[in-house]
Amino acid sequence: MVKEIERAGLPVVHVCTIVPISLTVGANRIVPAIAIPHPLGDPTKPFEEEKAIRRHLVEKALKALQTPVTEQTVFND
């Protein structure tokens, strides 16, 4: 899916938990997420803290979208 969006000419960032799978499906901009059942959250944390984690991930995603890449790139902290 991510590949088809890219193919259509839209810059896309894949926020996902298992980076190797994302690499396999052909994503070019990858931001590693928290966990499979809650990629952008952590239910063990208090709500405000969880939301901060989510915001941080989305910020990273937006940053990835603004970064030129020539090959598959994983955006870690």
Binding site: P11, V13, V15, C16, T17, P37, A61, L65
Partner: peptide, 10 residues
């Protein structure tokens, strides 16, 4: 007219 996409996966 969308400019960029965030795709989330589990």
């Amino acid at each position: 007219g969308v400019d960029a996409v965030i795709l989330t996966s589990t």
